[in-house]
Design a binder for these strands. Structure first.
Length: 168
DNA sequence: CGTTCGGCGCTTA
DNA sequence: CTAAGCGCCGAAC
């Protein structure tokens, strides 16, 4: 199976979204500061356009996009797929997500699963928040700052462009 | 309001 | 096998 790659720049995030596909299935999404070395393969363009539209403020839940989770374990796969039930503008806590996959109390393990998400944005790990209302952590480029921007773009409750108040 | 602490399920070393 | 460390949680102070 040949590997196709492409990327698109999001001014709102200040980051490039790199996408890798194998045989029509998305294997990797990465948020990076660096621009790609080569131009986007045409097979990746439809998804890149959808990502760009979403990041420009037109919501897309990507629930129809096939993803490859063969690199992660069974528990983490269940947790990551459960994210498809959390739509743009919505959020969920680590604890609630743990309950949803039948492992109440596994909130920490859920966090570890989020950190290994190979396809952020397509599987919206940025919508998972700690129970105390703070943004929590994010392993993508830019850390929690990127997480907050994503939630602001999606107009999640409590993240509506008022990012100047919660700095530091 | 803030910090500390024990406990948690799962993965990696 | 044990051990440590996580994108955490809830209660207690």
């Amino acid at each position: 199976m040949t590997v196709r790659a492409g990327a698109v720049y999001s001014p709102r995030l200040g980051l490039h979204v790199h996408v890798t596909q194998r045989g029509g299935v998305v294997t990797e999404v990465r948020l990076l500061r660096a621009a790609p070395g080569t131009s986007a393969h045409e097979d990746t363009v439809p998804l890149l356009e959808r990502l760009a539209a979403h990041l420009a403020g037109r919501p897309d839940d990507f629930s129809d996009v096939p993803v490859d989770l063969s690199g992660v374990g069974e528990f983490q796969r269940r947790v990551l797929l459960e994210l498809r039930g959390v739509k743009p503008g919505g959020t969920i806590t680590y604890g609630e997500l743990a309950r949803r996959v039948g492992q109440p109390g596994a909130s920490r393990a859920v966090g570890a699963a989020m950190a290994r998400n190979p396809v952020p944005l397509v599987l919206p790990c940025h919508r998972v928040l700690p129970s105390d209302g703070k943004p929590g952590n994010y392993s993508g480029e830019g850390g929690w700052g990127t997480k907050v921007k994503l939630l602001a773009i999606e107009r999640a409750p409590g993240f509506g462009l008022a990012q100047s108040r919660l700095d530091a």
